[in-house]
Design a protein around this nucleic acid. Structure first.
Lengths: 340, 340
DNA sequence: TTGTATGCGTTATCAT
DNA sequence: ATGATAACGCATACAA
């Protein structure tokens, strides 16, 4: 169980531990005699030397660990983001510590402290609501931070996300182009900027087309299947017999929940109702009807966030940048031309 | 940017850093004068002291970090497991480093070394194929290790998983009870013990009932949607006009892929074909037809793994234990009585 | 109750 | 090309 140290190798070889350290260091190996280097490498191999990142970190002031904060690991949408982060970080020799806030502000603050105490080299945060703005701004002052997926306008924090407003517009234009004139929007928590952006984009495009639109904003806390059911129920209640035919759900979970509730009320999708979701979560393509949705480039966002974080570590003074990717409309079976 | 140390607080207060250390230590605070303790706490607050886990870890020989190894972060099935791990670890004040092997043995070995160099206190591993057996056994000798979800029979490693054979039996019995006499099994990679176990259980139950069963084992490397399509294609080719009517897919992805291919060939589920999946991945309940599947207690496994790991850290000498949870049949719409 | 001294394993500086 | 030495920040054994 006792682990092998530099000193062990040094004694074994009759050299000094600093020589061993140099021989093993990727960028200082040239400062050492090739012959000794060989002996060191061999001894390290034989003795099973593994290094000690903790000690190295203490000495160098760098841990090689990145704190990653997500809202909910259960949300299927986060999988691709994490894959992107993981593969991006892996290339740089960095390791992610993963934490989950459950979308709670208190938890977010606690986690930030923990990560800071761990001396993470940087943080990638995909969680955070409007109430967390101050916490995150303070965080970004202490450690290189990049916001991924979710953004905070004018926060001065490096961000890689995508254009939610454009996504909202895409959804509206798609429904309008199919001839739907009576629209509705099932809204996610508006204190998360992503949803607010989608709302704005959708509303703009609807207004520009002089179409009619029912906003269903029940201030749900989390955008889940159940929330989707509830929003749809409200919509049906509100509109009695004269339902909108084109519906934009601000994420896929809401869309699926809404679709189910509608079906229970005898409304078929896409026959009676066209529904557009958001995110393009895995498996949405395999629902029946397959969900028309706005694809958010989740993997790419994760990947870019990881790369940005690496450059930020190299150059902490670097001024904040913002990368904004584009959403994409994915037309499947849940939307259809309005019947004449 | 310069961070506050114990020494800073000590100088600020005119006491020794060891006193500050004691005052701040949860289990040694009683060794210090309540009055000084108060002053220390206040000063720590004012100066923004955060501690340094790296230094603490080096000194105490404990990092409070757990290495978590998964095969594929993109697999929707892993979400609930991670949630379980995360919440279980959180309660113990431990933090997870997440890594991904992409189901590659080389990558697994590399990752083990990285985690060991990080001096993680323990490892939770949900990845690993038969070829990795030796690597994992060696790993478990160096650091407390718990295998989660996937198991290695007689490895002597603490494991929390569930009974795959029972799950396979459940699937077979369900199909048989519906009157299906011609069965087929779409097999996942058999060098992963989970799949081998499901195969065994299913085969046993089929044999016990004297039923007919076509095994489709194309030695796929990963159990994906595409693999499911391929397996189903093979099955249809093999069986020409006289298709089995009861199909067990060894995971949900295979089931979904198979269902799609069958549909393209004019076979409807559940009218012509009953299909049982495995895992109960999120959203399977919302497919059409909703997938009948075997529920694997993913969250509970993750949670238990985290708790086991914590006890293992406290008591490293503890002999390996094995926790085996039970699968559960979830009947939905993709299976139906055979038509007479 | 508090202070002193030491070492965890590494790396950087300085000298040889 | 290599060795000696110090320091990173903390926790502990021991002394006072």
């Amino acid at each position: 169980m006792e682990s092998v140290t530099l000193k062990d190798i040094a004694e074994h070889l009759g050299v000094d531990s600093s020589t061993v350290s140099r021989a093993l260091s990727p960028d200082k190996r040239n400062l050492v005699n090739p012959a000794t280097r060989r002996r060191v490498l061999e001894a390290a191999e034989v003795l099973g030397y593994r290094g000690n990142q903790q000690a190295s970190a203490l000495r160098r002031g760098r841990t090689g660990i990145i704190g990653v904060i997500v809202a909910d690991l259960g949300n299927p949408f986060i999988g691709p983001v994490l894959r992107g982060i993981s593969s991006g970080l892996g290339g740089k020799g960095l390791l992610p510590i993963m934490t989950e806030t459950q979308d709670s502000s208190d938890e977010l603050a606690r986690i930030c402290n923990k990560l800071l105490a761990q001396r993470v080299d940087a943080i990638i945060c995909t969680a955070g609501r409007q109430a967390d703005r101050a916490v995150l701004k303070r965080l970004a002052k202490e450690v290189p931070t990049v916001l991924a997926v979710r953004r905070f306008p004018n926060s001065g924090i490096t961000t890689v996300s995508h254009d939610d407003a454009a996504g909202g517009r895409l959804a509206a234009e798609h429904l309008l182009s199919l001839g739907h004139t009576k629209l509705a929007m099932l809204m996610g928590p508006q204190d998360i900027w992503s949803f607010e952006g989608r709302t704005q984009g959708f509303s703009e495009a609807v207004a520009a087309a002089d179409a009619e639109c029912v906003l269903v904003d029940e201030a749900i806390h989390l955008p889940t299947l159940d929330a989707g059911r509830e929003l749809m129920r409200r919509l049906l209640d509100q509109t009695a017999s004269d339902h909108p035919t084109g519906i934009f759900a601000e994420n896929d979970s809401i869309a699926i929940g809404a679709m189910h509730l509608a079906r229970e009320h005898g409304l078929r999708c896409p026959d009676d109702l066209s529904i557009v979701g958001y995110n393009d979560v895995p498996l949405t393509a395999h629902l029946t009807p397959a969900l028309t949705t706005i694809k958010l480039p989740a993997y790419e966002i994760g990947r870019l966030a990881a790369e940005l974080v690496a450059t930020l570590i190299e150059d902490p003074g670097r001024s904040a940048s913002t990368v904004t990717l584009s959403p994409e409309l994915v037309v499947r079976e849940s939307t259809r031309s309005v019947r004449i």
